[in-house]
Amino acid sequence: MSDKTHETGTDQIIKPSAEIFGPGTISMVLNVNGILQSIEMEPRTTLAEALRTSLKLTGTKVACNHGACSACTVWLDDLPVAACGILAIEVVSRKITTIEGLGDADHLHPVQKSFIEHDAIQCGFCTPGMVMSCAALLARNPHLGVEEVETAISGHLCRCGTYPHVVQAMLSLSAEQEADHG
């Protein structure tokens, strides 16, 4: 994806200063999936709300809204975090990656392909977050065992019980990479 399709508002990035923002609406720029986008938000707006409502990136799901289920997992500077517990204003100018930035129907990420192949999906509501955690794991550790996968997804809750197929999907990716690299 191109990195700067939306130039306006870059000067509005909040820099450390004594300035007081809010409580009403303010203009902010978020760097989401490589695109700088200006949005109107209040200081109380969470990152999850900003993504879902202002940017219409509804792939990030909110299930518990208290950081306990990880359905809202996005990457903040490449680290998985729970977007429901972060204020959008805190992450202005930081690099945010959502499920929409990971891959699309024509360019699926290997984790997405493997999830499909192993049916690591049921109702799908926890799936985008689960995919984000798994893709982050794969990026930092391509040689996975059950324990690494279980730890990486340990914060996720899935009521349908996709966990066993998620683990299988990830182990098969690991095995593939092992095969690729001899």
Binding site: S17, I20, P23, E42
Partner: peptide, 15 residues
Amino acid sequence: MEAFEWQQAASPENA
């Protein structure tokens, strides 16, 4: 969540 203002501290002492 009620609305609130937001300010970044310049230093720990400032905060």
